[in-house]
Amino acid sequence: MDTAQKRRFIRPCTFVWLLLMLLTVTTYLIGEAGLGGIAVMLAVLGTAVVKVQMVANYFMGLRRTRWLWRGIVLGWLLLVTGLITIAYLTAIK
């Protein structure tokens, strides 16, 4: 890997790192404000989905692999967060 390739490897990850920090602070502020309800739950869980995808695709490097590997992580993520959402909605009824 030469310097130009290193830059292409690191720059997107540095941007992702800063974005992850920003999204974490957003989730924290929502939590600190004590906000709740369906919309907030969907926003917070949606943020977590985006963050996990960023870690998997950029930090773990899955964006450079065949779709199968990204699909396994995305499938797991959507199944887990989908079931969490269903459980949350069940609790409201």
Binding site: L20, T24, T27, Y28, I30, G31, G36, V40, M41, V44, L45, T47, A48, K51, V52, V55, A56, F59, M60, V80, T81, I84, Y88
Partner: peptide
Amino acid sequence: HMVDLLWIILFPLVYVIH
């Protein structure tokens, strides 16, 4: 990265969502 990824879900699930 996996350890980090899991905490990214655990934190909002247990500490924030209600």
